[in-house]
Design a protein around this nucleic acid. Sequence first.
DNA 1: TATATATTTAGATAATTGACTAAATATATA
DNA 2: TATATATTTAGTCAATTATCTAAATATATA
Lengths: 91, 91
Amino acid sequence: MNETFKALADPTRRQIIALLKERDMTAGDIAEHFNISKPSISHHLNLLKQANIILDQRQGQFIYYSLNATVFQELISWFMQLGNFGGKEGD
Amino acid sequence: MNETFKALADPTRRQIIALLKERDMTAGDIAEHFNISKPSISHHLNLLKQANIILDQRQGQFIYYSLNATVFQELISWFMQLGNFGGKEGD
DNA sequence: TATATATTTAGATAATTGACTAAATATATA
DNA sequence: TATATATTTAGTCAATTATCTAAATATATA
C-alpha cells in the first residue's frame, strides 16, 4: 500500500494515469505529452508498475501501458473505511 | 491536490490518520503511539493540516486534532472518475 | 511572577527522489 | 548480420524530505 500511495504522490505520474484513462499508450506516446526525458518517463512508468497501478504488455517493439482498475478499487475502499462514507448515520 | 497526495504518501502520516479515525487526540497522545520525537510528529501533523486532511482546535494547553472527512470525499471522487466505478457498464 | 506542561519553530543532517546523459537491451527488417 | 527504432538500465547530481536536538511560544497554576 505504501508503494501505491508514493506512486500517486507525484503530479507527472498522476498525469500519466489521466492519459491512460483515455486510452492505452506506448511509453513513447506517453513521453510525448511531457517535457521530460524518456528515461525519466520510463522511471515513472516503472514506479507505477511496481505499485500495481498500471500494467504493461509488449507488442513487437512497443510496450503498451494500461490502467489496472483493481488498485483503484482498493484505494477507494481504503478511503471509504476512514470516513464511514455512505453508511448508516446512526452515531 | 498534490499536497494531499504527498501528505498521504508516508506511513507515519497514514497511521496518524488511522488513530484519528478512532477518536480525536492531542499531539502528545498521537506522539505516544510512535517511536519518533515530538517535533517530528508535530511536523507530520503540520503537513496533514496543510493538506487539509486534519483539523486542529486548541483547548487550553492542548491542541486536539481530528480528521476532516471532506477531503476524503474529494479523494474518493478522484479515484471514482478514473475507473468509472459503480457506473453504467455500457460499452 | 515564576514554574511546569504541551506544542511548535529553527537549524542541521542523512536518506530519498526526480531529473539528466550515456550506454545497454529488445525487436523489426533490410 | 547490420541497422534503425523503442525502451530500459546505470550512474550522477540537485532538490526534497524525515529525522534529530535545542530553543521558543502558549497556556495553566502556584
